[in-house]
Simulated assay, not measured.
Amino acid sequence: MNSTFFDNEDLQYCFENMNESCYKTPLSSGLRVSLYIVLGLLVIFTVGGNLMVVVSIVYFKQLHSPTHFLIASLACADFGLGLTVLPFSTVRSVETCWYFGEIFCRFHYCLDVSLCQASIFHLCFISVDRYVAVNNPLIYPIKFTVPVSGMFIAAAWIFSLVFNFSVVFAGSNDKGMQELVNGLSCAGSCQIILNKMWVVVSSLLYFIPFLAMIALYSRIFAVAKQQVRMIEMMSNNTQPSNNYSDRVGRRERKAAKTLGIPVIAFLVFWSPYLIIVTIDAFLNFIIPPLIFDIAVWFAYSNSAINPLIYSVFYPWFRKAMKVIVSCKIFHLDCSTMSLFSE
């Protein structure tokens, strides 16, 4: 490796005074500072952007709808990841050592996986929401109510947290792999090993929602295209239709398209990591740590991208963000203002 990136010094350890310390990869000062700046900015954007989404939806009464509550809960998962997971992951990636203890290592891993898993469940439920809205726009408000949205949110959070914490702290994740765990164990390491069974289970918990989202959005766009053709045919035979049903249908189709963008982003950012994890487990963990770390941070970046997507494609978020930044939210009547163009 080029000496520009690594110092040519004697072998270093994470803990110099411990015999069982892990080896440390000594990065050059310039690279360490650059990494701290880049990853630090990613953490700030993740925390700040998603906090803005949550505040917007909670504060403005016009956004108190089942779909927006799902988006707010998704933003909470990304906000939690940026606030509680990414700072420690930044130190581990730059220092190439874990300085926070074995117990917190397990807690950090569980929180990391739980929040990421909660995100994909939320995106899957948003797909279900849009599917119902596009296929049945008139009866959608009756079928998909705020309590139903709350049930979906509770299911995503409870399952993600309970499943991952119970598996890791019960020791089921590395059952039958004690020899490998002992061989990789050293002070300054935070490497949670998953046996093949749990790799398959964890992968399915990602890939099944992935496939469900792809199927739902394929159906959504097919139905939307069919509805547009029907409206065009009716418009050619009669006067242009401006009835309530057509207006609701157009609105829901537009919402489905914009809400499909975060789903596509999730697929793009998370696919490399899921592929690497699966390959690594079945080929006796041959993936180099650097490649694994790059894939992890590429997946983390998705949590910072979602608020950017909202700001580009959602006019209501841009308007809400301007109100919040300008401190107009302290006005008593501001929460009832209209954020949608007619």
Rank of each mutant, 00 (worst) to 15 (best):
I279Q: 05
I286Q: 12
G150A: 13
E20D: 14
A155N: 07
G82L: 00
D174F: 14
W98E: 10
A222W: 06
M1R: 13
L70T: 02
A215P: 03
I103E: 04
V312T: 05
M18Y: 15
V167S: 08
R32M: 10
V134L: 00
D7N: 11
N284E: 09
N50S: 10
T84M: 14
A255Y: 12
W157I: 04
E16G: 01
R247S: 12
K24V: 00
F5K: 12
N284K: 10
L63N: 08
A75Q: 09
V58E: 06
S114A: 14
P262G: 02
A170L: 14
V54S: 06
C116W: 07
N136Q: 08
I305V: 09
V58D: 04
A77K: 03
V325K: 08
R250F: 15
M197T: 15
I139Q: 05
A170V: 05
I153P: 04
T4K: 14
I276T: 12
Q178W: 08
F152Y: 13
D112K: 10
S160I: 02
S301C: 05
K175P: 00
A154E: 01
V223I: 14
A224F: 01
F207G: 02
M337I: 11
S127L: 06
S160G: 02
P288A: 07
L31I: 09
I214L: 11
C334Q: 15
T238A: 11
F152E: 03
P272D: 09
T96P: 08
N236P: 00
T258I: 15
Y140R: 04
M233P: 00
K143H: 04
G49Y: 00
K175E: 15
V91H: 04
L267E: 09
F88V: 13
G30A: 12
Y217L: 05
A75V: 04
L83I: 13
Y206W: 10
R92W: 06
Y206E: 12
A265V: 06
R318M: 03
N195Q: 02
E342V: 07
L216S: 04
S311F: 14
L180T: 12
P262I: 00
A255R: 14
V199H: 05
S73D: 05
S301Q: 02
T336S: 12
I276S: 06
F313E: 01
A224D: 01
P87K: 01
C190L: 07
L81T: 10
C334R: 14
I279P: 01
A156G: 05
T238Y: 13
C124Q: 10
N284C: 07
